[in-house]
Amino acid sequence: MYAAKTAGPSSSRFFADEMNVAASAKLELESDLRRAIAGEGLQLYFQPKVDLATGRVIGAEALVRWQHPRRGLLTPLQFVPLAEECGLIVALGDWVVAAAAAQLRAWTEAGIETVCIAVNLASPSFQQPDIVDRLVGIVRRAGVAPRQIVLDLTESLLMVDGERTIAVLDRLREQGFGLALDDFGTGYSSLGYLKRFPLDELKIDRSFVSDASGDSKDAAIVLSIIELGRHFGMRVVAEGVETAEQARFLLAKGCPIQQGFLFSRPLPAADFSALLQSGRGNDFRRQLAAAG
């Protein structure tokens, strides 16, 4: 039945032994994920956000990884959909926020100058009635201030129950959390709502960045987002920057804050700590210049 439902409306499927094999493997992975969230196995990687106006790291996005005992290191695409399906996404989201806050505290205690860390907030977490109190409690138990955390929100999340969304965003911002609209331009956002959302940051989706320097339509979208952010007083971040050509185009058009493989892949906490300690000064600007 579930195989037929997954295949879409008016579909039918005949039973096969492979279905039992797949169901058993899925159930086993779900059980492993429950143990990982409650114990060990999950870890955070950090991808730097770079300000090309100064060349410095000004923030990072926290990305969860799962060191599975038998399957090795798993990326979010390999287990987050499962967490959503089996009702573990809220617990997983809480773990990510708690781990990011704990890392911020560790950097402070080690005397490392910290940056704001962005974490993705899934829709089921945002819809929890106690979401504001829960997030505040998580970060304060870690001994850090909410202003050190940026919550990445999707357009589809924000468009559900607009009035409640605005009220929750207002409360989160009052507590000090930064608010970013992730993958902007890929959803169904209403500009009428956007001007009412108390957002600090717009993130240009990588699908527009990849061809912005060569495709006139993508370039127009990117330029529109940059201009929109400027008028609304929001910081604009370009995601998925992979080439020097893309970086130069964005910088010339007024978007110096960038994130992507050109600068760094997501790094384990120890490697990102070393990056923060090194200072790196204008290294990223020199790196861009050296790229020709």
Rank of each mutant, 00 (worst) to 15 (best):
M1A: 10
A4T: 15
S10Y: 13
S11V: 14
D17C: 14
E18T: 14
M19A: 09
V21C: 09
L27R: 14
E28C: 11
E30A: 12
G39Q: 12
L44T: 00
Q47N: 02
Q47F: 00
G59I: 03
E61N: 03
H68V: 08
P69F: 05
R70G: 05
L73W: 02
L74C: 03
L88F: 06
D94H: 13
W95M: 03
V97M: 00
A101Y: 07
A102H: 14
A102N: 15
T114I: 05
C116D: 08
C116F: 04
V119I: 02
N120V: 00
L121E: 01
Q127R: 14
Q128Y: 03
D130Y: 04
D130I: 06
D130L: 04
L135G: 03
I138K: 01
R140I: 02
I149A: 00
L151E: 02
L151S: 03
T154P: 02
I166Y: 05
V168S: 01
R171A: 10
R171Y: 04
Q175C: 13
L181M: 10
F184N: 03
G187W: 05
Y188V: 14
Y188P: 12
L194R: 10
I204L: 00
S207G: 06
S210V: 15
G214E: 11
G214L: 05
D215K: 08
D218E: 05
I221G: 01
I221F: 01
I225L: 02
E227F: 14
L228K: 10
G233K: 09
M234T: 13
R235V: 12
V236G: 04
E239M: 05
G240P: 09
A244T: 15
E245L: 08
Q246E: 07
L250H: 07
Q259A: 00
F261Q: 07
P268Q: 03
A269W: 01
A274P: 08
F284T: 15
R286A: 12
R286I: 13
A290Q: 07
